[in-house]
Nucleic acid binder design. Structure first.
Ligand SMILES: [Mn+2]
Ligand SMILES: [Mn+2]
Ligand SMILES: [Mn+2]
Ligand SMILES: [Mn+2]
Lengths: 218, 218
DNA sequence: ACCTATTTTTAGTTTTGTCTAAATTTAATT
DNA sequence: AATTAAATTTAGACAAAACTAAAAATAGGT
């Protein structure tokens, strides 16, 4: 497996899709920041290796083997992110770039030992689940803060947008995973929210709320 | 800097050499497990970038810039080796292969944090010095065990051959860095040695003794 | 059913790093 | 000094992964 092949598989996985609704060449090209013609070439190569299903003009979907491989890269990526935050004091907006490199290190023992050192974390710093060695991962019952009703209360468990600017914005406003949030009011005019969090009140735009995941309290 | 360029610089550094005694194309090719013609191509490219001095048929030597770059790769390699041994319980015969990959990760912050986590080690698991950020490293006063006189006593501080088979042999015979060794007798016939170490006596071949570094006691 | 806009593929190039085979230079020996 | 052997470079080719431009297929709208 080359680094490029691994990146393609990871991106195809993240784009979702299935045998019945395959991912388009264009969608992959956009995520890979490459041209559709390059994607076609790679689709053929990955199909040749049995990692994706590909029929001309129909798009691409992962085979079981391809899914397994994608999950193992994602597992490495997320474990390294946890490592960087927990052991090396990186902030959550700095880890992705480095993890993009570290996820390609080839050593099963290495990643298993990192997993052990971190005491087998189930989620990465952005709240995304970490697949186990055999490709299983937790699907947490979460919803976007923007979809919570007035009065709704929950714990912040993840971010949808995990770009550095958004994460830095959250830091600046002391919004962090694990904090309890209650929706106090929603403005009709622009869907902006008044929320209560950790004993203080703040006002956030709809755009922010629609990028924060919350786990509802029963 | 590509991964290949980094590997060339590292190998040229390890081969020693200087402006007056440059490294031959063949020597580099052998270490890189590649062909001399490929080395010629790379020599031109590195010369173009100001990392090596190269004159046709005369061989290659590192410029200051090239030396600096080589040392930064070696620094990363050795720090990762320490990390693997100290934090992840790798044995010293397993770390090299993984460090060969990790040394190419591009993040100054990452390696500085690893350095800090390890409390700024000065030597790697094989006794090799770890260059500091500005390229300085300790040159320890050491000599080969095979060059010690009868009765000579010292602490084992490094290995010359750090191949897995040799390291495993040392483990099996409980020979480790930090142990005190005294030469009891040297066989005339085959230069093999009787040594005392950690309260026991053992017999080792000349070949073993000529791959162990010892720091003489004053 | 036909035309058109969009998507996707093909064909041909480029760059990086490698190779083989041939040519050239250097070094060693007579 | 001439010959020969060894080391080194050149020339031409290839595979991987990208690109551009042109051709082909699909999907939408009439
Ligand atoms: Mn990430
Ligand atoms: Mn993440
Ligand atoms: Mn090593
Ligand atoms: Mn080492």
């Amino acid at each position: 497996m080359t680094r490029s092949e691994e990146n393609y598989l990871k991106i195809i996985f993240h784009l979702g899709g299935s045998d019945s609704t395959p991912i388009t060449t264009n969608a992959i090209a956009e995520q890979m920041e490459t041209k559709p013609s390059s994607v076609t070439d790679m689709a053929k190569k990955l199909a040749e290796k049995g990692l994706v299903n590909y029929k001309k003009y129909q798009g691409v979907s992962l085979t079981d083997q391809g899914t397994k491989t994608a999950l193992s890269i994602i597992r490495k990526h997320r474990l390294w992110e946890v490592f960087l935050v927990k052991k090396l004091d990186f902030s959550w907006d700095e880890v992705h770039e480095v993890a993009e490199q570290l996820e390609h290190i080839k050593s099963e023992k290495l990643i298993d030992k990192i997993d052990e050192l971190l005491e087998f974390p189930k989620f990465d710093p952005h709240g995304d689940p970490i697949p186990s060695k055999d490709g299983k991962f937790m699907v947490r019952d979460k919803q976007l803060l923007s979809e919570m009703p007035i009065g709704g209360k929950g714990v912040c468990v993840g971010v949808k947008d995990s770009s550095a600017p958004f994460l830095k914005f959250l830091d600046k406003n002391k919004i962090a995973l694990g904090h309890t949030i209650q929706v106090l009011e929603i403005e009709d005019f622009d869907q902006s929210l008044h929320i209560a969090m950790e004993g203080r009140e703040l006002h956030i735009s709809h755009q922010i709320a629609s990028n924060l995941y919350v786990k509802k309290n029963e």
